[in-house]
Design a protein around this nucleic acid. Structure first.
Length: 639
RNA sequence: GGCUGCGUAGCUCAACUGGAUAGAGCACUUGACUACGAAUCAAGAGGUUGAAGGUUCGAAUCCUUCCGCGGUCACCA
């Protein structure tokens, strides 16, 4: 074994110059070492800069060095030129930290070159810790709500973005040290589900998922669509009727008939429609616990849940707890009435209850209808309280599309007014709408992309491509099917998660099954290559560490990326944004592919190089698999 | 119209939150398999960061005004 490695295993650090204040840094990762040391050194000069404010990044490719400290921020206080400050700080850091072998200064940038010792430490740290990159448990709990569907139709493309975001964020928060509880609220009551129920009752002839061989959520969705079709027929006929014509003449003013009836549809449904009347009666019967309606409701929702469960399982997600709107809306009403008594809300003459938020630059918002029934926001007030009672979480996150930004602003403000203790711990993780290249998804135009169909498509595309490759033939049929699934889903998930959540997203189904370039399968391929090499290497040799000082650029870049992984996770957690993790995975895979192409691993010139590269490869594989898991993506062993 | 978000290569996205010469992929052109896995690599071309001002050592990022595209302003959810 080489001398350097021997030193590492037998001795603790024995820096000639390291002072006592830096001793405690040696167990931290290099990035933190640099940050904290810089902070200490500046403090000795009377300059207060917290470690967190020291900006350290990987050095750009075209400059020499591994990590770069941006020193502009300290220049003013030092009253020296940027290069002078850089030289001074570089010298100080090098003398205090064993991990730093050299430095150079370009303008206001201090480029640090890490010692081979530091790189060995990194590889050992990764090897010894399967959870490298994660933070210690912090004894804080985060509640994260996502998906939250209505029970009247199947999950679609929009839900997929929501679910992937929610799932990935919960993995990331967990990795950052939080305890995480994944929940969803099922919107299982209301007029929408009554529409499906009524259509089934009128036209269904007893059809069930079993009798028709249809997945439950699709069957219920079929009746929801049918209801709307029948309603349209009814409405069209009514427009020609005596009543319809006279209403038009009475209220249309100057509007042409077509435009008028378009705008009038809601009013028609609520005041004139026979189908509408029956649906509303059903809702009222439901609220009165009518046994027949309730049992129909239970049966049809049951079908939907079974369908959803299949979709969740296919996507690889689970929830820890479900809340049902049917069980929470009553509490919402009670809380509103309580707020009224406390004088926080006001009652208008017609009996409706409102909150006035004009002092917060928002509007008035209705909380209970004049007939005393609940509106959408009513239940959210109740569920927030319930959740806090159940979990006492330190953070509560709602993953909901950005069309509800205002809704959540209002909700959080109301909870603040009510003096809820967790009001400042609420966060709306808002994401942009998913559109198709042809524009928005429209149910009427049949352009809705169902979650199940999409998954099926990406998996069958993965199958078609994989079968052309040949490598896959070494797998059994069961293993093959598993690989196709992992590859297809990786394509889909990576495609959606690499985009910053707040951005609106154009989703091209044919591009999402792309398996080349900046994609999930590209990352998987890097992993599979490593696994293939490791299988061919002798096991005991992988465990040997040796001195290897002559790092190639491609090796250095991989090490740099490995070093910043903990940072990538904590940033993603701080910002509730998985896209940084996805981009990190891609960077890592890309650099590995280059490394793999440029250098021989098993056939390296020296034993040192061979062992180092095997270790480096193993570390890359471990971190890649870990990071992809944070995105909810599984790695195949072969593909 | 009020409030709010977004405009970066033909297309889809980055840019460490104010830092180095704005980077990737797709598509296009051209090269590399008798190589540890070619789902790979390398090279080329592609930009007035929607526009104009401003703030400073330094702006895609912050401020102002326009232009364009969404969302939202229901006794819907």
């Amino acid at each position: 074994m080489a001398e350097h490695a021997f030193l590492f295993f037998t001795c603790q650090y024995q820096s000639k110059q390291a002072t006592v204040i830096f001793a405690h840094l040696m167990e931290k990762n290099v990035l933190d070492q640099i940050r904290e040391a810089t902070s200490h050194i500046l403090k000795e000069q009377g300059i207060e800069v917290s470690a967190g404010d020291v900006l350290v990044s990987t050095t750009r490719k075209d400059f020499e060095g591994d990590l770069t400290v941006v020193i502009f921020p300290f220049v003013k206080a030092m009253k020296k030129s940027p290069p002078e400050v850089g030289e001074w700080l570089g010298a100080a850091l090098q003398s205090h930290l064993d991990s730093i072998a050299g430095y150079n200064v370009v303008q206001g940038f201090l480029n640090l070159t890490l010692s081979s010792r530091a790189w060995f430490d990194l590889l050992v740290a990764i090897k010894e810790n399967p959870h490298y990159g994660t933070s210690p448990r912090k004894d804080q709990k985060a509640l994260i709500e996502f998906c939250s569907p209505n029970t009247n139709k199947p999950l679609h493309l929009g839900h997929i973005r929501n679910i992937l975001l929610g799932w990935s964020c919960s993995r990331i928060l967990h990795a950052a040290g939080w305890d995480v509880v994944k929940i969803q609220i099922i919107n299982d009551r209301g007029i929408a589900i009554c529409k499906s129920m009524l259509a089934w009752k009128l036209y269904g002839e007893g059809e069930t998922p079993e009798s028709s061989g249809t997945k439950g959520d699709f069957l219920v969705g079929k009746y929801y669509v049918l209801f709307n079709d029948k309603l349209t027929l009814e409405y069209d006929a009514w427009q020609e009727s005596v009543e319809g014509r006279s209403i038009h003449e009475e209220k249309a003013e100057a509007k042409p008939a077509k435009e008028f009836f378009n705008d009038f549809k809601n009013t028609y449904f609520n005041s004139y429609s026979e189908l509408g009347k029956q649906a509303r009666e059903m809702l009222i019967a439901w609220e009165k616990d009518d046994p027949e309606v309730r049992s129909l409701w239970t049966m049809m929702n049951g079908w939907v849940y079974q369908g959803f469960d299949e979709t969740f399982a296919a996507l690889g997600v689970r929830f820890d707890q479900l809340y049902y709107e049917s069980e929470t809306w009553v509490e919402g009403k009670e809380q509103v009435l309580k707020g009224l008594q406390q004088g926080i809300f006001v009652k208008k003459e017609d009996g409706s209850i409102w909150v006035d938020l004009t002092d917060r630059k928002m509007d008035e918002k209705i909380l209970l209808r004049s007939d005393g029934t609940a509106v959408y926001i009513t239940q959210d007030i109740g569920t927030a309280m319930q959740r806090y009672r159940d979990h006492h979480a330190d953070a509560m996150v709602y993953v909901v599309g950005d069309e509800q930004n205002y809704h959540f602003k209002v909700l959080f403000e109301i909870l603040k007014k009510l003096g809820e203790p967790y009001a400042d711990a609420l966060f709306h993780l808002s994401y942009g709408m998913v559109e198709l290249p042809s524009g928005k998804m429209k149910g009427r135009e049949g352009t809705i992309v169902e979650a199940d169909d999409l998954m099926r498509d990406v998996i069958s595309e993965a199958r078609a491509v994989a079968l052309e490759k040949g490598e896959i033939a070494t797998l059994t049929e069961v293993e093959q099917t598993d690989a196709f699934r992992k590859i297809g889903l990786a394509a889909l998930k990576f495609f959606m998660l690499k985009i910053n959540p707040q951005k609106r997203m154009v989703f091209d189904p044919s591009a999402s099954v792309d398996l080349q370039g900046q994609t999930g399968p590209y990352v998987q391929n890097a992993y599979v290559r490593i696994k293939s090499v490791l299988r061919k290497a002798e096991e005991d040799q992988i465990n040997v560490y040796a001195t290897y000082t002559d790092l190639a650029d491609s090796e250095r870049q991989l090490l740099q990326l490995l070093a910043i992984y903990p940072e990538v996770i904590s940033k993603a957690a701080r910002e509730y944004d998985p896209s940084g993790v996805a981009n990190f995975c891609y960077d890592m895979a890309k650099n590995y592919h280059r490394f793999y192409h440029d250098l021989k691993i098993l056939g390296a010139d020296t034993e040192d190089a061979r062992n180092f590269r095997l270790n480096l490869s193993a570390s890359v594989a471990q971190v890649l698999a870990h990071a992809m898991d944070l995105l909810g993506i599984e790695m195949p062993e072969k593909m």
